[in-house]
Amino acid sequence: MVEVNGISVNWEEGLTVEKLLKQMNYTFPKIVVRVNGNIVDKKYWAEYYVTDQSVVQAHHLIAGG
């Protein structure tokens, strides 16, 4: 399992940040991702593997219309 914004989500081999966000339906254009406290730049999302038991924060930067 991995934890994404406090929610437990199934982990699978080969899970990248990009796949994880897609699985969560996080489509927002401005998301800051931290995996175990480390920021992962958007350009590395497709190649950054999320290991089992990781804690992921995907903070959507929007404070309103």
Binding site: H60, I62, A63, G64
Partner: peptide, 12 residues
Amino acid sequence: AWLIFMDMINNQ
């Protein structure tokens, strides 16, 4: 205040 994402999505 517009706190929906901070609260509901980001769980901050």
